[in-house]
Nucleic acid binder design. Structure first.
Lengths: 201, 201
DNA sequence: GCAGTCATCTAACAAACGTTAGATAGATTT
DNA sequence: AAATCTATCTAACGTTTGTTAGATGACTGC
């Protein structure tokens, strides 16, 4: 049995509760007493684990990005050499959606409340965001190198378009009632071929 | 000169200020004193114009949806008879993005803070949301009737995909520095033909 | 010039906020 | 058994919250 200290256990429970409450009611809409209540301790005790409310939300943000980043990076690295653009992007899309929706309390902090946080908190998490964007740009450019990507499509534009579409699934998709894999197949198909398929001349 | 009552003028100013502050700091992160300060009156005076803070945010939500709904509906109705799917969807996408970004303080309330609002406020605005979704489904189905839409693509899935991608532009696109029309052309191209264009057999 | 409506103000309310200091009980180490 | 460390609690702090009641001065219609 691995020795998990009581503090670490409590800390994790606090973060889980905080992430879910931030998602539902926003950063300012959740008080430390709300979090403490549901995590089974008193508001003052939170300060044994975190220096401030800002530090709690910053930790939630970091965890959310890290989980998705690792999942996508690992899956793409595990592909056989020289995958087709379809295979490469379908894999990245599936992994993003799976991780994103599996840890949706944490990831939704990044989507829903990032823009409402104190500037210092935002600033601290920007590097992690930019690294994840860079990962996607690299994936898209790798697909482009295989030759079948349309030249008229800009990498950053496509990345913003695709991540926007995927991240919005947080607002309506319920993994308990729908099949994430099927969603991923449909979104990959749309991202790669669009509503119509072949463009006109 | 049309006689705009002083009350109506103040009311509009309050809504403008409230929308922008909600966007930046969330619903609970903005106090009535914050709004009153920037609108040039005292917190208590807000109650001459609105019954509660909830009513202010509900009004902001309504305005945001109504502006975009009307813009898209009007532009689609003004198209010549029997437009091609490309023309129809490109027009709808352009209008959505133009209105969405032009009134971004109001529309971002719908995207950013809707999920964090008290359930009664959410419930009151659901019908307007559903009507806008129905408008898009009608547009997509009309394109489908023209025959060139791929059968494998589901209407609701495409609508969620596309609206998600477009609405995310709120988080990064600055109309003062970029060309909304160009963004619309690129997004329409991606939505219709994807990254690759023609799907494989 | 008077009455009434309009739009705003001041001042207060109880409740809730993030945060801190110091006490406390159980576990671990000496 | 004593001393230390760990994790939590209680109780309070000053500030801010949404909201209300009643006063106030400026316009409007007569």
């Amino acid at each position: 049995m691995t020795a998990i200290s009581k503090a670490e256990d409590t800390r994790q429970r606090v973060l889980d509760v905080a992430a879910r409450q931030f998602r539902d009611r926003g950063y300012a809409g959740v008080s430390l007493r709300d979090i403490a209540d549901e995590a089974g301790l008193k508001a003052g005790s939170l300060y044994y684990h975190f220096r401030s409310k800002d530090e709690i939300v910053a930790t939630v943000l970091d965890i959310g990005i890290a989980l998705v980043h690792e999942a996508v990076e690992r899956a793409v690295a595990a592909l056989p050499q020289g995958p087709s653009p379809e295979r490469l992007l379908t894999t990245a899309i599936r992994q993003h959606l799976q991780a994103f929706l599996a840890y949706s309390d944490y990831t939704s902090a990044n989507v829903r409340i990032f823009g409402q946080l104190p500037p210092e908190v935002r600033r601290a998490n920007l590097p992690a965001r930019q690294r994840y964007e860079a990962l996607w740009d690299a994936i898209i450019d790798r697909a482009r190198a295989a030759g079948t990507v349309r030249n008229s499509v800009d990498t950053a534009t496509f990345r913003l378009f695709l991540l926007g579409a995927m991240n919005a699934s947080l607002e309506w998709f319920d993994p308990a009632r729908g099949d994430v894999d099927r969603l991923a197949r449909r979104y990959a198909d749309l991202a790669l071929h669009g509503l119509l398929g072949r463009p006109e001349a």
